[in-house]
Write a protein that binds this DNA or RNA. Sequence first.
DNA 1: GATTATTTTTAGGTATAACTAAATCTTTGT
DNA 2: ACAAAGATTTAGTTATACCTAAAAATAATC
Lengths: 237, 237
Amino acid sequence: MNNWTTRTPLSEAQEDYLKQILLLGSGGNETGRLEDTLAVSTQSLAEQMQVRPASVTGMLKKLAELGLVVHEAYRGVRLTEAGYKVALEVLRHHRLIECYLHQALGYGWEEVHAEAEKLEHHISEAFEARIAEWLGHPSHDPHGDAIPSATLELPQSNPSCRLSGLERGAFGLVVRVATQDQDALNLLAHLGLRPGASVQLLEHLREGSRIQVGQERYLLPTALAQVLWIEEGGPRG
Amino acid sequence: MNNWTTRTPLSEAQEDYLKQILLLGSGGNETGRLEDTLAVSTQSLAEQMQVRPASVTGMLKKLAELGLVVHEAYRGVRLTEAGYKVALEVLRHHRLIECYLHQALGYGWEEVHAEAEKLEHHISEAFEARIAEWLGHPSHDPHGDAIPSATLELPQSNPSCRLSGLERGAFGLVVRVATQDQDALNLLAHLGLRPGASVQLLEHLREGSRIQVGQERYLLPTALAQVLWIEEGGPRG
DNA sequence: GATTATTTTTAGGTATAACTAAATCTTTGT
DNA sequence: ACAAAGATTTAGTTATACCTAAAAATAATC
């Protein structure tokens, strides 16, 4: 374990592992506190990174040597404070870039992920600072994900629940679209199910949830209903 | 030699080699025509890329296999049409990014090079198109270097000469600052010797050239006087 | 034609990050 | 409690990309 806070620049793969450990450990709900994250299994990381479990073990070993994770064999991996910081930094880059592409360059909110995924590893702190400034230090990205501040604090979010967990007849506002699947994003964008959209839940069925968005009614498969996070509230603001 | 126009994505290093072959082969004066470029020596490439000549030979072999350069042993290397296209594409990315950092994000013209150097390899064609549009399809970057168009044509430049070649008493406009050395850029920026600045040449001395910029007079070392390209013209526009 | 400088070849090194196969550990079901 | 199933680790391999030093080959110059 290396304690010297030295910044041997991490590889792209290493940064991605740390980011995924944070995301998986948060169960999609980052609280901003390392203590609230769970240990992540080798398996789930392997799936997420599209790699064999053995490859994950290898990488975790390296990250553990760097003092960025604690890996208890057979029990999963957790970030250390240092690793958590790096992961938040990467997340900040990613989400700021998404914001910037959307607001400054006119990308659709469903298009920004792929470009941000590449760029997040290659921008300087100066660049980060400049776009954050230009954007007015936003708290959330175009998908509704919270953006860590320059000091790596996460902003508070209002209570919300998955669309699939909404009660019959309830109204609400989409506050977050929690998927990175490009096809899912395209579909949701086409239906107008973007952050800020107003929806009503009509009924839950075995195949999915029947909902109303504007004048249109859709039967949304459960897989998709689970990625939409809703803030409950009266009909159409 | 691979003729299939396939786009096996090139590595960062490969793109950098191609770019440097173009820059060195143009002697700092790109005409936009491959025929006007000279063969580049292994040595000069090695210096530019900060590696040993043997490494250059190795890389040239690989690039030749990809059909991007023609390497005549012991006689130097030239770009093929395909390699020339790639090099221009990289140059376009680099210079557009420099413009964008300067105009959209407020970077100083002397600061943009380093950031662009990293980003040029990691932006998509969509990103390139969007920033080109935002900028209004500029023809030159903040250093005065010509930007290849979307179709990879280089814009015509007005005739110009090095400050070191100017005649005694002549007036002119800085149109290009042809160095990537950060310290040189900083120094020139501090003296106000940026593209667009008006200068008069007072006299040439052994140590350099005495010049006047605004109210100030400087003795500019020859090494620096050679990177400043001047368009001759009457005193202060 | 010999000397010098440059270039290429050869052989080998480093680093990253992936993989497979086999061994080992943990969990689960009976 | 134990066996089977599943997950994880170990060990050894592969592939890529890049680099180097030293020896051999070539070109240029006197």
